[in-house]
Amino acid sequence: MSKHDKTMKTPEFQGVEGAPILDIRNLRVVYQTDLETVEAVNGIDLTIERGKTFGLVGETGAGKTTTALSVLRLLPANTGRILSGEILFNGKNVLELDETLMQAIRGNLVSMVFQDPMSALNPVYTVGEQIAEAIRLHNPDLTKEQVEDRVDEMLKLVGIMPSRKTEYPHQFSGGMKQRVVIAMALCCEPELLIADEPTTALDVTIQAQVLAMIRELRDRLGTSMLMITHDLGIVAQTCDAVGVMYAGEIVESGTAEDIFLAEKHHPYTVGLFDSIPNLSSRTSRLKPIPGLMPDPTDLPKGCVFAERCASCMEICRQEHPGVYTEGTHKICCHLFAAPSEKEGGAK
């Protein structure tokens, strides 16, 4: 199949020409139970240009997975609620589409790879069947042989022998399973691939292999990617643009150069870099960021990082900081935003 602009081809989905592949604006997502409300994502803006890879970095619980699930509208039905904001895929607001259209998009235009490969595959169906299912779903007019050929092709692509397609998931190792998942995600050549910590559950050597494979496929197919990770090393190797997420907000964003090489940084970003152990120098102790992320059911007024920030000021506890912009580099911190340059309001 040749690569062409899929969005235009899919009749039901008419995207806007020239728009960035993904544009999230002021997204707010909560998990609502009878007892409490968890404020998971609190007004984030995120843009991914076509063909580029965006890395979303942050600790566990920052709201990265929630953001990813919101794009595909796969939040748990009982509790997840998207309160406000827009998610524009090719310029079209995904939050306004009906479920049938969403199903046409999922796996087809936007695919997702999850964190834990061990349980991501259905144990009672062969891997071939599971990949074929995705293919058949979005290409109903293909013949059986054509579908099978495609399955073989995808397996070869991820480095698995096609003859293994009649085997069951439990017969594969963790790394192999993740490759299968990736094959499943890419088999319909999606425009956008969301990878939620795809290698976190694998050991380091396999990690390198799988990452290399992802990069290669991305280059070959020209897929845009949202790479969610807590590992700055992966970000350095893979991403074009980066967003640093903390307690449901993007506290710093920019190009990879901005994040890694610029002088000014959000104190949280500084803490992240500082906490990476250095291979060359000897250190007796690691340098973590003191404290814990705030309770998402009870977020503080003002800056969310204030509690743990070394450079915390009085105003940080009172007012939510505005965004300081320097070209592509954006930092949300009172240190940099002068009162007159304030954008975005207090909470």
Partner: peptide, 15 residues
């Protein structure tokens, strides 16, 4: 609740 159900939904399988 299993993960593979989420994977299936992510593939676009109708509910």
């Amino acid at each position: 609740r299993q993960d593979y159900v989420r994977t299936a939904r992510a593939k676009g399988v109708p509910e």
